[in-house]
Design a protein around this nucleic acid. Sequence first.
DNA 1: GCCAACGTTGGC
DNA 2: GCCAACGTTGGC
Length: 157
Amino acid sequence: MAKRYWLFKNEPDCFSIDDLVKAPDQTAEWEGVRNYQARNFLRDEVKKGDEVFFYHSNANPPGIVGVCKVVRDGYPDPTALDPESRYYDPKSTSDDPRWYMVDVQLTRKLSDIIPLSTLKAAPGLESMMVTQKGSRLSIQPVTADEWRTIMKLVRRM
DNA sequence: GCCAACGTTGGC
DNA sequence: GCCAACGTTGGC
């Protein structure tokens, strides 16, 4: 299976690129995804070795702030079973886990954010999911062309 | 804080 | 299975 590319969104108030920088081994569990379409990606399609843009949503400005790598395939998200967790879901059980997550490791934090406005203006990213109006999915596939286009912006920084 | 877009729930 | 009501996301 060829390596694939993704964009993972997070609100920096919740878990930011700096939290990943500070994490042990600069590795974190991408927990708390509670959307079925995103869940299906995490469970079935996001694989170890895939590369990921770390995106800050609900931020000023929103945009891509880092690059990371998937280091563990999808597995059941234990926070769904923890009544103390903000991600607790009483309908999920250990026999029939409803929610999945992967582990990611930092590759690099960008020296500057690539704002959403830059992505929207960049030739070649017109049909990228994150540049579309109303795009709410928190786990988004990125095409190899889109990945290359954005990495060119990264190298220019 | 506003509000458009989207997802989920639940009555029927 | 439809769809109105409601809740959430996320840019601005």
